[in-house]
Design a protein around this nucleic acid. Structure first.
Lengths: 145, 145
DNA sequence: TGCTAATTGCAACAATATTACAATTAACCT
DNA sequence: AGGTTAATTGTAATATTGTTGCAATTAGCA
């Protein structure tokens, strides 16, 4: 059973003329399972635990490709890469990152995006890409405390 | 003539019980002059050109401190550190970064911050810190083209 | 199945970041 | 002003992260 997010990502690779290789599928899988952001070396470690070896250079190249294709995204607050689950037609990425458990969720809000772009436009700035990260405590962690 | 932003930063250091050392003043100065984000090694290079040598370890430590005190900020889209010019009472940082000239401007919008926090709150997430980066083209660069 | 361009692995290296400990210095005190 | 001390910086060594060129491999296609 392959997750739909991965199916979609594979379709993107194909339609853009990129090969669907074993390493790419493996990285997609690891990113999809993780509910948090992973560094390239994290991904390597996880795969190695499963007896699969990928060279770190390969992982870097795959992650760069995924980011270019909007299949993954780099986050600053968590210092790694995440699998994107939402379409990014607006070039707008929003993440909620829990500083307790590291869990990361992606959310979308078109209105907010538009508003943000408009504000920038007011000072003559044309936005091509927008990134928003909120660092805090998720509902699960705040319940536990 | 010392820039007011630096004066303010020095005051923050003092009131928080940190020493106002030569290295800290130098890093503050370099960050303030730059209209774009600088990596720790960028800062070292710039100072060296002026005949001032700072160890990179020192620069890292200073930058960490500045970030903790909200005097500087790390940006993902530009991959370096910037001097903050606005008060960050809300723990909310917004930057416009030009992908042509690298220029970076900080802006504030309380309403946007509140709205963003509220949206997160709807899914039980409590925001402590928020980061927003818009990558695009500044007015100067779009005129030139 | 064989061909070919795309992709991966490898090796070497470059850049970035951290740690422990010794040397220095800013801020405070008479 | 000069001495004291805790905070800060420098040094050295090391760890981590990221990049490049080139040879080996493989996915996708005829």
């Amino acid at each position: 059973m392959i997750a739909p997010v991965i199916q979609d990502s594979i379709r993107v690779l194909q339609t853009q003329g990129y090969k669907v290789t074993k390493p790419r599928r493996q990285v997609l899988g690891v990113l999809e399972e993780a509910q948090k952001s992973l560094s390239p070396y994290d991904i390597q470690r996880i795969l190695r635990q499963r007896g699969k070896y990928l060279n770190h250079v390969t992982i870097y190249r795959i992650l760069h490709l995924f980011c270019r294709l909007n299949l993954a995204h780099k986050v600053l607050s968590a210092g790694g890469f995440v699998k994107c689950v939402l379409d990014k037609k607006e070039g707008c990425h929003r993440f909620l990152i829990c500083r307790c458990c590291g869990t990361l969720q992606e959310f979308a809000d078109d209105e907010l995006c538009q508003h943000e772009k408009k504000l920038a436009q007011n000072s003559g700035f044309h936005t091509e890409y927008h990134l928003s990260e909120s660092l805090g405590i998720c509902s699960d962690c705040s319940k536990k405390q």
